[in-house]
Amino acid sequence: MKTTNEILIVDLEATCWEYDRIPAGQKVDIIEIGICELNVATQAISKKQSIYVIPERSKISKFCTDLTGITPQLIKEKGIHFEEACEKIRDEYHSGSLTWAGFGNFDKEQMMQQCDYLGIENPFSESYLNVMNQFKHYNGLHKMMGLKRALKFLNMDFEGNHHSGADDAYNAAKILREILQ
């Protein structure tokens, strides 16, 4: 990890379909970038927000809306293009120089894949921390567990709505903060 005190915690929500059946001609698109900042020195979690992203290669299915609460109308009202979202992250979080983290590898892989596909520079550094793996090793566990179960294991409550990017990022930050104490 870099020596800075800030770590960005990211949770993405993306277009999805029941039974992971991606319709012909569509690709998984990021529709929300949930992000917050963990100050390792003060243990404060701050700058939590949802950045809604207009899907460029797919449509939001009913299944996806039921899971995430993200509707086509919400995206129409608050969504910005992926490239703008990346610029916003760079500008507001100085993300290129910070370690970033997510609960598992989906967020890292999806961000890299979408940046590559669209020819956009990844707004995050190459320093990525998989909070799920850190949690597993910290607790000496043999199996992975999801975000909600990990919080329960640590006797913490889930705050907010599961599959809300900003809320999931915040809850992953709470787990990381506990591990780094």
Score class of each variant (00 low, 15 high):
Gln114Arg: 10
Glu126Ala: 03
Lys59Arg: 12
Lys174Asp: 09
Val131Asp: 03
Ile60Val: 12
Pro72Glu: 02
Ala172Leu: 02
Gly165Val: 05
Pro55Met: 01
Gln49Ile: 10
Arg57Trp: 08
Ile70Thr: 00
Ala101Ser: 15
Asp167Cys: 06
His137Ile: 01
Ile7Met: 00
Ile80Arg: 09
His94Val: 08
Cys64Tyr: 08
Ala166Trp: 01
His81Arg: 11
Gly140Met: 07
Val53Ile: 14
Gln26His: 11
Ile175Asp: 06
Leu67Ser: 05
Ser95Gln: 07
Gly102Trp: 05
Val53Lys: 11
Gly160Cys: 01
Ser50His: 04
Asp11Glu: 06
Ile33Trp: 10
Gly79Asn: 06
Leu38Met: 13
Ala173Tyr: 11
Ile31Ala: 03
Asp168Met: 04
Phe106Cys: 08
Glu159Arg: 12
Ser164Tyr: 00
Pro72Asn: 03
Lys62Glu: 09
Thr71Phe: 11
Ile175Arg: 05
Gly34Leu: 10
Asn171Pro: 08
Met112Ala: 09
Thr65Ser: 15
Glu159Val: 14
Gln134Gly: 06
Ile89Tyr: 05
Lys88Leu: 15
Met145His: 11
Ala85Thr: 02
Gly69Pro: 07
Glu32Cys: 06
Ile120Tyr: 05
Ile70Tyr: 04
Tyr93Pro: 03
Gln114Thr: 13
Asp66Lys: 08
Gly160Pro: 06
Ser125Lys: 07
Met145Asp: 07
Arg177Ile: 00
